[in-house]
């Protein structure tokens, strides 16, 4: 087990040498970026218990920020992605405070309307976003004279970003902050009676989730080479959610495994995009009815059952 992580990492780094197909490399790039977004959603939903549809808004806002930085303001890809994180952090802080004061029903609704609002602004604020046509022709990023052109080279940018982002989320999840977040999710009044203030913790998860999602969206924009309102397609949100639910809300490694599986499997099956989403939807329904806490939760329940039997 101890070897699994280094081996996986070596295999991922070597991926461009293992396949010559740009098609596969393209899937791999969007696969890791969507897994990062799902892992960020896992922090918000799986740890903090906030079912937030705002993630798709942050994803798209990040993509636009990065693209506009490069195309209109003459910045580099790197500063664009950094700005995407900054803008999303501020945005999440601004909407997070009032949102977290509402009841959970209203929270979900506001998160959905926020996501839709982002999509509408991207379509309507033509002076900045160029409207439905979007911003095409995003250049490949470069560093120290090396240009990461083409999926096989861009892969290193995507992978590097993903490893850093996932390391941050892992450190957060395994720290005391993660422990307290899940405690609040399990029993908020109990946590309060133990001196924990829920609001700052939830806000932290919401803001960090937004920053990571936005930066992933920023990298994604340069993978696609174009940003248009389709970046807000609800399809992305559905994919992030499926990954979190199947992997098991609150389980870091479960979500990671599910992310890779969910991106790779349907491609391997060569399903059309529509059919794939039908399958995802069916999987979501069955999973929520049969094992509401995902594969990781299901395994945990088995462990508890065995222990309980032993103790009786």
């Amino acid at each position: 087990m101890r070897l699994a992580l280094p081996v996986a990492l070596v295999l991922l780094v070597a991926l461009p040498w293992l396949t010559a197909s740009t098609y596969i490399m393209g899937i791999a790039v969007s696969g890791v970026l969507m897994t990062v977004a799902a892992a960020a959603l896992n922090l918000v939903y799986g740890f903090a218990g906030l079912l937030s549809f705002a993630a798709i808004g942050f994803w798209g806002v990040g993509a636009y920020c990065a693209a506009i930085t490069v195309m209109d303001w003459g910045g580099s890809f790197w500063s664009g992605v950094a700005l995407a994180g900054l803008v999303n952090g501020v945005l999440a802080l601004a909407i997070g405070v009032p949102m977290l004061r509402t009841r959970r029903h209203a929270f979900v609704v506001v998160s959905i309307t926020f996501a839709l609002l982002c999509a509408l602004v991207s379509r309507d604020w033509t002076a900045v976003t160029r409207g439905p046509m979007g911003i095409p022709g995003l250049p490949a990023p470069s560093a120290f004279g090396y240009v990461f052109a083409g999926s096989a080279r861009f892969w290193f940018v995507a992978l590097g970003f993903s490893v850093l982002a996932l390391a941050l989320l892992h450190a957060l999840g395994t720290s005391r902050i993660g422990l307290v977040l899940k405690a609040i999710k399990q029993n908020e009044p109990l946590a309060q009676s133990q001196g924990i203030s829920p609001l700052p913790y939830k806000l932290l998860a919401f803001v960090v989730g937004a920053v990571v999602t936005g930066m992933a969206g920023g990298v994604m924009a340069f993978h696609l080479g174009v940003v248009d309102p389709l970046i807000f397609d609800f399809y992305y949100m559905q994919t992030f959610l499926i990954i979190v639910i199947i992997g098991g809300a609150g389980s870091f490694w479960g979500v990671l495994a599910a992310g890779l599986a969910m991106v790779v499997l349907p491609e391997a099956l060569r399903a059309s995009n529509d059919l794939r989403m039908v399958i995802y939807g069916g999987v979501l329904v069955v999973a929520m009815l049969a094992m509401p806490r995902g594969v990781a939760g299901w395994l945990e329940d088995r462990r508890v059952a065995v222990l309980r039997a032993k103790l009786r």
Binding site: Q238, V278, Y280, G281, G282, V283, L284, V285, M288, L289
Partner: peptide, 11 residues
């Protein structure tokens, strides 16, 4: 929400 979201995706 998640169950009905899944149903909506299938439909």
């Amino acid at each position: 929400i998640l169950v009905t979201l899944g149903i909506s995706m299938v439909l």
